[in-house]
Nucleic acid binder design. Structure first.
Length: 179
DNA sequence: TCAGTGATTAGG
DNA sequence: CTAATCACTGAG
């Protein structure tokens, strides 16, 4: 019997209370958690989350919600545990997990998973698209996160691709990554 | 460094 | 309606 560790590692699905906290707890704690996604064949694939970024409320100039509540950002205003996906640069879907309390728009961008580095690459691989917008990871039958007990060391750094934000927000060390 | 790509948004 | 923007990637 062979198999990569990722075929073997599984754990308990994260519940609502994990997500209904400040994104500055949620984003770093997602590192080492297991992202489970059902593929076209109905198989559940598991990946270790290796990189995330925190977007924290309407005061954070790098957060989409800082530009107001719109159809696109609506789900960020919901209770944590839902999925926020949006399209950028004409090609890529970005996968985010909503965090925090209702009406406090926060989300964690999933920037990397085992085997795939880069937010656009992983959504392409997992076939994440608009159909996942608003999906609830506490009850979904095709996407959720599990805790398998992994607690890898991680580093922090400034978030990527947010040059439009003011210096204060651009420099926040709200990117979390292993290795 | 920089083009490509199209949804989203603000502004007439 | 128009035009600007953009939480990226890959080529060079």
């Amino acid at each position: 019997m062979t198999g990569s560790p990722i075929d073997i590692i599984s754990g308990e699905r994260l519940k609502r209370d994990f997500y209904v906290r400040d994104v500055l707890f949620v984003a770093p704690e997602l590192i080492g958690k297991i992202l489970v996604v059902r593929n076209d064949s109905g198989l559940f694939c598991r990946y270790i989350i290796t990189e995330t970024e925190a977007y924290r409320g309407d005061g954070d100039e790098a957060c989409h919600a800082s530009r107001g509540r719109t159809a696109r950002t609506e789900v960020m205003y919901h209770e944590g545990g839902k999925i926020y996906v949006y399209f950028v640069y004409g090609m890529y879907w970005m996968l985010n997990f909503v965090a925090g309390e209702r009406d406090n728009p926060q989300a964690a961008l999933i920037r990397g998973i085992s085997g795939f580095k880069g937010p656009g690459k992983l959504t392409r691989e997992l076939k994440i698209d608009k159909s996942y917008y608003g999906e609830d990871m506490i009850t979904s039958e095709r996407i959720w996160v599990e805790d398998a007990g992994l607690r890898p060391d991680f580093k922090t750094g400034p978030r990527i691709g947010i040059n439009y934000a003011g210096e204060v927000w651009k420099n926040k060390p709200w990117r979390f990554f292993t290795g």
